[in-house]
Design a binder for these strands. Structure first.
Lengths: 139, 139
DNA sequence: AATTAAATTTGTAATCATTACAAAAACATT
DNA sequence: AATGTTTTTGTAATGATTACAAATTTAATT
């Protein structure tokens, strides 16, 4: 997605498409790496001079509140961010710490049967060891 | 469950059933409140004199490693603990911060289709507003 | 292009949960 | 009771996140 499209997408969701916001969203969309704030900072600091970690926190919180990003709490000591807000699952590898998506159909999620509850978010997380790390261990 | 049964359960899982461990497990099992370390500390400090928060952290980490408790990472800023290690889902209310269980059949969880992966843990989290808080808001 | 008011970003300090670590205490075995 | 091991404790360290006020940028107006 181009910066123009990203800007339009942010605007459509009530977010003024300022430069740093566009760059951060662009990073999320293109990398698809479920980054932590630190990962974003370390990657973008070369590209955006004078970028502050606080700004990344501010922008990501805005994205989550506006519904254009998800905050993933797979592990208690870190929040990861995902620009894909459609229903899908996440797997985190204990060895390489990587997080990958897997597709699930919304209708395949089990019915919680919570009468009278309002459900805003659904998160399906798996943890284990990814195929790549298993092959490395066996080798 | 009685202290005796708890002690036997811990022993069966390779955990020496020391007094504080039994009391902490007993708390988890009887309260079923998905507590944070702070909640456990504030409740048990009256009952166990000289209890340290570090001990609670130590014991809970041991429980999780030994497979007799789950660490829930529903929200990024807190870890909650659950002595029910069977497959089930969790709902967290944004208003009252309460966490409740809901039953799901293991076979109803969607197939992630992750070929060659080893899956150790499955977590299904929902967030929203519980029926009780909705009724209070409407009233 | 200069002015201005509002929104955003920055950097530092504060906060909060968790962990590290070494000393003290409890435990189990002889 | 004595001894060696395990556990607990308390304080300090860590690390992620937030608070906040000053500096900067933005967008609209003159």
């Amino acid at each position: 997605m181009e910066q123009q499209q990203i800007a339009a997408y942010l605007l459509k969701n009530g977010i003024r498409p300022l430069q740093k916001r566009v760059k951060i969203m662009s990073y999320l969309v293109s990398k698809r790496n479920h980054p932590t704030v630190d990962m974003i900072y370390n990657d973008l600091i070369h590209e955006i001079s004078g970028l502050s970690k606080t700004t990344i926190y501010n922008v990501l919180n805005l994205f989550v509140e506006s519904g254009v990003a998800l905050a993933l709490n797979i592990e208690g000591n870190e929040i990861r961010y995902d620009a894909d807000t459609s229903v899908h699952g996440h797997f985190k590898c204990k060895v390489c710490s990587g997080v990958i998506d897997f597709r699930i159909k919304p209708e395949d999620l089990p019915n919680p049967g919570l009468q009278g509850f309002r459900i805003d978010e659904e998160h399906y997380y798996l943890k284990g060891v990814c195929a790549f790390c298993i092959s490395k261990i066996e080798a």
